[in-house]
Structures are given as C-alpha cells and as structure tokens.
C-alpha cells in the first residue's frame, strides 16, 4: 500500500491556487532559466527572491521539510557549488574557457603520497558557483513545497486536466506517492537489520565494499517495492482500471488568481527570452567592482 507525503490543508494563497497553475508556473521558471540559458545573476537573483517569497507564502513548518532541505543543500552546495567552483563544468563557455589569474591554489593529494593535482580557484569560478547555486535554488525552492502543499487526491486529476491520458495521469499519481512509501519501507528494513547488529556508521572501505555493506538495506527495499508494485497492479485490474475512458470524480476549475499566476510565469519566460535573444542580456556576469578590486 502506498503512503502519502506529509500534506496538511492550510488556508494560504499557494494552496488556494489550482495545482495546474502551480505546475505550469514551475515549468515556466525552469524553462526561463534553461531555454534562453540565463547565467546573469542580475536576472537570476530577483527570480530567486520571487520564488523565495512564494515559498514563504506556503507557510510550511520547518520540521516537516528539514530533511528534504538538508538533502537539497547538500546536493546544491557540495555537488553543484563545489563542482562549479573547482571545474566550472556545466557553465557557459566563458567559464569553461576561463584563463583569468587564480586567486589561490588548492592542493588535492592522496594523504602520504605525491599523487594528486593542484586546483586553481579564480574569481570567475567563485562567481559562477554562486550563480549556479542561486539558479538551482530558484527552481528547488519552488518544487519542494509541492508534495507538502498539494492534496494527494488531486495529483492524478491535475495531470489529466492538462491533457495527459488516464493511464499516465494515474501513473504520475502513484509515482508521487512512491517516494514516501520507499522511505517507510527503508525505515522498517533499517530497524530489522539494526536488530541484527548492523550499523550504518560501519560503512568503511572502497566503493565496492560500501555497496556490499548497503546490500542488507537495498535488497529488501527493492523486493518490497516490486511486491508493492505488483499488488497495486492486481488491485487496479480487479477494479477495471484502464478498460474504459475514466470519470475523474474531482473536478478542477481555474480562478482569476490562477490566470494571473500563469500569466506571471509566462511573462517571466517571454521576458528572459527577449532579454537574451533580443538584447543580449543574460550571459554570465561578474560584478565589475569585484574585478576592479582585484586589479
């Protein structure tokens, strides 16, 4: 059986919005940053402030999202941020081909050996890392509240009303609820294995050794997920799912605020496209004051 996210009804502007307008707005923000390939912090930062405001309007309790945020912070700061600062990968050409003078050098050597290399950290890469993290956060801060502030009963119908087929809509509904179910199964398995003396902190050694040590968790959880999947399919078959066009009991209606919200999202997308392709604004930008300060 699938469980749901920690959703609770709240009387907030965000939760009064139609789920479709929230999904469309999220798509607009992602497309605004990716299609015209915006790297200018002067455009990204205001967008970040807007999405942060929307996040705060959702009024989610910190304790509900603490773990999710820790994971996202880890991902953004340690993987995206450090990668950006150290290699510039994933950035525009000006960052990838950076030839500016290094601010400092970071030696990376295996302890006790001469194996390794020195990383040259430049101003360009530091600014790039900050830009990249702000860009990612702008999207994450908008996506993260969705499962906590969207009624699980309208996942499926939201997709159906956007023109997606019955089967795909219900698949999206089930997929949304799969993650918390996986978390529940993982927690039971961790308990079961801890009762057999298994300790998470004893994950030592190389990658293969670590993966072997994770097998007591991965195998039962995978088995459980497979079983749950088969059970859900049987249960749906026995109640005639997918054999005829479906009636979705819940109906959704756009309100004025939804049209305005979608219009805002589309406007941002159009504005970023026009700025980038019409006026050449949106390329990677370093505050001149910083460059001057260094010189």
């Amino acid at each position: 059986m699938l469980v749901s996210w920690k959703y609770r009804p709240r009387n907030t502007f965000i939760q009064r919005l139609d789920p479709r307008s929230r999904l469309i707005f999220l798509a607009c923000v992602i497309l605004s940053l990716t299609i015209p390939n915006i790297w200018d912090i002067r455009l990204i930062f205001p967008l970040f402030l807007l999405t942060l405001t929307l996040y705060l309007l959702a009024q989610i309790e910190w304790k509900d999202v603490r773990r999710a945020w820790l994971f996202i912070f880890f991902l953004i700061f340690f993987i995206v941020g450090l990668n950006g600062m150290l290699s510039g990968r994933g950035g525009p050409t000006s960052v990838m081909n950076d030839t500016s003078a290094p601010l400092f050098t970071l030696p990376v050597y295996f302890p006790g050996t001469t194996w390794g290399f020195s990383l040259e950290i430049t101003l360009v890469r530091i600014v790039f890392a900050i830009t990249q993290m702000t860009r990612m956060l702008s999207m994450a801060i908008l996506a993260l509240p969705l499962p906590y502030t969207m009624d699980p009963n309208i996942y499926g119908v939201a997709f159906r009303k956007m023109g997606v087929s019955d089967k795909v809509s219900f698949t999206m509904d089930l997929a949304f609820r799969f993650l918390p179910t996986l978390a529940r199964d993982l927690s039971i398995t961790i308990d079961a294995q801890r009762a057999r003396g298994y300790e998470m902190d004893s994950l030592k050694g190389g990658i293969v050794a670590r993966l072997r040590r994770l097998a007591p968790l991965i195998v039962p959880v995978t088995m459980q997920s497979t079983v749950t999947g088969e059970e859900v399919i049987d249960a749906m078959d026995l109640r005639a799912f997918g054999t005829a066009p479906r009636t979705w009991l819940k109906d959704l209606h756009f309100a004025r605020r939804d049209y305005l919200f979608i219009a805002l999202g589309v406007s941002i997308f159009v504005a970023f496209c026009v700025l980038k392709w019409g006026f050449g604004i949106g390329e990677f930008w370093i505050p001149p004051a910083l460059v001057a300060g260094l010189n």
């Binding site: 749901s4 609820r177 059970e231 249960a235 749906m236 819940k250």
Partner: peptide, 22 residues
C-alpha cells in the same frame, strides 16, 4: 493493504465506478 490504491477513503471507494466511466 494490497487492495487500496487511492490516498483518501472517498476516492478509494469511488475508484471502481470512476474506472467504469459512470
């Protein structure tokens, strides 16, 4: 537990008739 597919009681009961397109 193996039978229940919807996240809420009302939707769970309505699931079959919805599939019949009533």
């Amino acid at each position: 537990e193996r039978q229940i597919v919807a996240s809420n009681v009302y939707n769970e009961i309505a699931f079959g008739p919805e599939n019949l397109g009533l």
